[in-house]
């Protein structure tokens, strides 16, 4: 018997009460219906409420947030942010169509496209979603917004459309299923709440550890 079959047989002998058919049916029903459990009230509310809670929570974990009313203002906002952080006016982005269309020349920014390289100081990505209840950004992998952009540069700027700010993780799961299909996931889904940190030496919180030092979220209303 293979290790696999032996392990499964052993587990089955411990948990089965001769009711395998019923157990299998219970598992498949649960997987197919993936019911929601209790969802905390904190994030639930109208657009303004979700935007406010998201902002408060993100700031509480060390991220910064600004709101623009027009997506075409993003290059300018990003350029300002880099200048105020004493960083060169250079950004790395993926092939995301919404980001590609922005008037980058307005911000006098130098833009590179692709996955992050070791020398990149700052990146910009477009979020798949935001979650108000914990101030969390959700990113999906792929050429549009490569995963390395979330981790290698010291500054990570995120464009988040207000319509994509959900109350809870569960609403983001629904959007994932809508886009990628039931039971199917992109290679990586990153849930990010603020810049990298560690408390491993005498429980003193230090930023950054291995990821970005700063996370700046530009919310587009």
């Amino acid at each position: 018997m293979s290790s696999r079959d032996a392990m499964l047989a052993r587990i089955r002998s411990k948990v089965s009460k001769g009711n395998d058919e019923a157990r299998r049916a219970a598992v498949d029903a649960h997987l197919a219906s993936h019911p929601r459990n209790l969802i905390p009230a904190r994030g639930i509310g109208d657009d303004e409420h979700r935007l406010r809670v998201f902002t408060e929570m993100m700031q509480a974990v060390g991220g910064s947030v600004e709101v623009v009313n027009d997506i075409n203002d993003v290059p300018h906002a990003a350029a300002d942010y880099l200048r105020n952080s004493n960083l060169p006016a250079q950004l790395r982005r993926g092939q995301d169509a919404v980001l590609a269309k922005l008037p980058w020349h307005r911000g006098t920014l130098e833009i590179a496209v692709g996955r992050a390289e070791e020398s990149d100081r700052a990146s910009i990505t477009r979020a798949f979603a935001g979650v108000a209840e914990s101030g969390t950004i959700i990113q999906t992998s792929g050429q549009d917004n490569p995963t390395t952009l979330n981790f290698l540069p010291e500054v990570h700027i995120v464009v988040l459309e207000a319509a994509n700010i959900f109350a809870s993780y569960e609403e983001a799961w629904s959007k994932l299923r809508g886009q990628f299909g039931e039971g199917t996931m992109p290679r990586t889904v990153n849930m990010i709440s603020g810049p990298s940190r560690t408390g491993d030496i005498e429980q003193t919180i230090v930023r950054p550890a291995h990821g970005p030092k700063n996370m700046h979220v530009i919310i587009v209303r």
Binding site: T136, M185, V189, N190, M191, I192, S193
Partner: peptide, 9 residues
């Protein structure tokens, strides 16, 4: 923490 900084799927 309400949520860890990085939760990765």
């Amino acid at each position: 923490q309400d949520f860890s900084n990085y939760t990765t799927l």
